[in-house]
Design a protein around this nucleic acid. Structure first.
Length: 598
DNA sequence: GCCGTTTTCGGCCCGACTGTTTTCAGTCG
């Protein structure tokens, strides 16, 4: 069982418990555990099998360790069975709707016996929902809109797509009177491969705020305005991309940038850390909590806490992000690392990684040409790589089994070598390696004979068929390929296509261990639709010492530019130039490639 | 349900906006 499946079961449990009205702190504990499980790079199932202590993991205590163990061993959890006897399983999906939380879901179910999105839509259209206490005509309107969004836009936006939709809005805002600074925060700034929405921050003078908000909501590309308050506005663009804008003063810029960059998990840790130092961190700044801030229970709940002034206490930081970190005694942490995956501890110990930069890349080792399914010739690709300042490159067309991509037979490969030789003569200043993206056949054998592989400078291997094998078989298939002595790199290791295809079932921990054992590298495929391996597995590869190749899998010249943005994923996996094979000089690369001759 | 340079008991992150409310609950980020 994969960690993601464990997380999913725990999530279902947490959702249902919340609808049931369980202790909110218990729910929070479950949610913390879910984050731990999904962020963990080792397979929990393996830990269970080896009888390792799960309570070592943060947020997992005796009870949750027991639940997870039970889930791994039996496929279910008694505690989940128990809840589902009382609360219908499907009810959790209602809370996926914008504006519907556990309380409303519970009410819909108890009062109207609604458990599915379909039933909710029917009831809402029939006018039954707006009669409920706490609901009204406006709520129903929002629920119907949320249902429509849910059906049309279940997936997140590719970062690369979001960039396109966002650009005109940024230009529209940059021309506005009264905006002193404008920046995109959120998961976009953290370099995530997909974004759910866009968080914009702008510094404005208080008197300019209404006009700026008006300019934002009146942008021609806005399809509808969700809300527009004094400091916060929210719209949906025609592309479906939701965009939030927050207006703030200069003194809060750093605090707000930090706060809205997230991640939520990172922020929670920072706030806890601040609290331990007698400080309060919010999007407005860092404040010293005044001594007279009553601890006491004497208030008897008479005075509503909501009245609290967000600016209370002495402001000690907030204008810059550096200042916010400094207030909690940390160096500035790059946004790509802010996922609460150990960056705070690393920062404290002065051990933040020196993240890889585009300038560190010396070559691209995965690309296609007109020989298989690419659009440009070998020579054109070579010239384009040289223009990008690379020292070396590899031509890696498909092998024969991938017939849809016009894969190369051994005979055609030999002929291709002649053309590579000619390109080597014609294009100066770059080393052209002869390679192949060799198909891993169903049984884990390779699609080309050893006598061909031996004469290649670099051998990539990949799965392009039989995605549906069960995890054990798929893992066995791939690890068998990695054990072949002539293999250099496993490319797009999980096969995922963002928003289109889930990774195939495979135990990546076992695959990475096999790669380490056989001296094989794994790829970070920087195509924005793949970004495969993803950050957690890159992090794990680095931890184990498995080398990584970052490559574009370009099928035309323009795709060579995927490298720059794609490296966000490498940075999110904490990779430094030393961890990446194609950041090494040609001599070092050549040395590594020759290891297989020994 | 988890956790411990305030604590093994009593805490658990902070604030804005909306809608349906006459003072606040729910939801979201």
């Amino acid at each position: 069982m994969e960690n993601i499946e464990i997380a999913r079961s725990l999530e279902e449990l947490a959702d249902l418990l919340e609808i049931q009205g369980a202790n909110p702190f218990r729910i929070r504990a479950y949610r913390n555990a879910i984050r731990t499980v999904s962020a963990e790079t080792r397979a929990l199932a393996g830990m269970v099998a080896r009888d390792e202590d799960l309570t070592e993991l943060p947020g997992i205590g005796k009870d949750l360790a027991g639940h997870i163990r039970e889930l791994v061993e039996t496929g279910t959890m008694e505690v989940l069975e128990e809840v589902t006897r009382e609360v219908p399983r499907e009810l959790a999906t209602l809370t996926r709707l914008d504006g519907v939380g556990p309380k409303k879901a519970a009410k819909l179910w108890k009062e109207l016996d609604i458990t599915t999105v379909d039933a909710l839509q029917e009831a809402a259209e029939a006018g039954r929902v707006e009669e409920l206490e706490g609901f009204g005509a406006r709520s129903v309107e929002k629920i119907l809109q949320a249902i429509e969004d849910y059906r049309s836009h279940q997936s997140r936006f590719l970062r690369a797509d979001a960039v396109q939709y966002l650009r005109p809005l940024l230009e529209h805002l940059e021309g506005a009177e009264g905006i002193h600074r404008l920046e995109v925060a959120g998961s976009y700034r953290r370099g995530k491969e997909t974004v759910g929405d866009i968080d914009l921050l702008a510094v404005v003078e208080a008197e300019d705020a209404p006009a700026v908000m008006e300019r934002f909501t009146s942008f021609a590309g806005v399809e509808r305005v969700e809300m527009a308050g004094e400091t916060r506005g929210s719209v949906v663009l025609r592309s479906g991309l939701p965009v939030d804008l927050r207006l703030l003063g200069r003194e809060s810029w750093g605090a707000a940038l930090h706060y809205f960059t997230g991640s939520k998990e990172h922020n929670v840790e920072i706030r806890k850390r601040a609290q331990g130092r007698g400080l309060r961190v919010s999007e407005y700044g860092v404040f010293r909590i005044p001594d007279d801030a009553a601890e006491g229970g004497a208030e008897g709940g008479a005075e509503p806490e909501a009245e609290a002034d967000p600016e209370r206490g002495e402001r000690i930081a907030g204008a810059t992000e550096e200042g916010v970190f400094e207030a909690v005694e940390l160096p500035w942490i790059p946004p790509v690392l802010r996922e609460n995956r150990g960056e705070i501890q690393a920062a404290e110990a002065g051990e933040l990684p020196g993240l890889v930069e585009f300038g560190d890349i010396r070559g691209d080792l995965h690309m296609h040409t007109t020989w298989s399914d690419g659009a440009n010739s070998i020579r054109e690709m070579a010239e384009a790589c040289r223009e990008r300042g690379y020292e070396y490159m590899a031509i890696t067309d498909h092998s024969q089994a991938v017939t849809v991509a016009n894969g190369l037979t051994p005979e055609r490969i030999r002929r291709q070598w002649d053309e590579i030789d000619r390109a080597r003569d014609e294009v100066d200043g770059i080393r052209i390696l002869r390679g192949s993206e060799v198909d891993i056949l169903r049984d884990g054998s390779l699609d080309l004979p050893d006598e061909i592989l031996k004469e290649l400078d670099i051998v990539l291997v990949a799965v392009h068929s039989h995605f549906g094998l069960d995890a054990a078989t798929q893992t066995e298939r791939v690890t068998r390929a990695l054990a072949h002595p002539l293999v250099d790199v496993l490319v797009h290791p999980t096969g995922r296509l963002l928003n289109r295809r889930e990774p195939y079932a495979i135990d990546m921990e076992t695959v990475l261990e096999a790669a380490l054992e056989h001296g094989v590298a794994v790829e970070l495929n920087t195509n924005p639709r793949r970004l495969d391996l993803h950050d957690r597995h890159l992090f794990r590869a680095r931890e184990l010492g498995v080398p990584v190749v970052a490559s574009t899998d370009a099928h035309r010249i323009a795709h060579l530019d995927y490298m720059e943005e794609g490296l966000n994923q490498a940075r999110r996996g904490w990779l430094e130039a030393d961890d990446i094979v194609n950041c090494q000089s040609y001599n070092k690369l050549d040395e590594w490639l020759r290891r297989r001759e020994e």
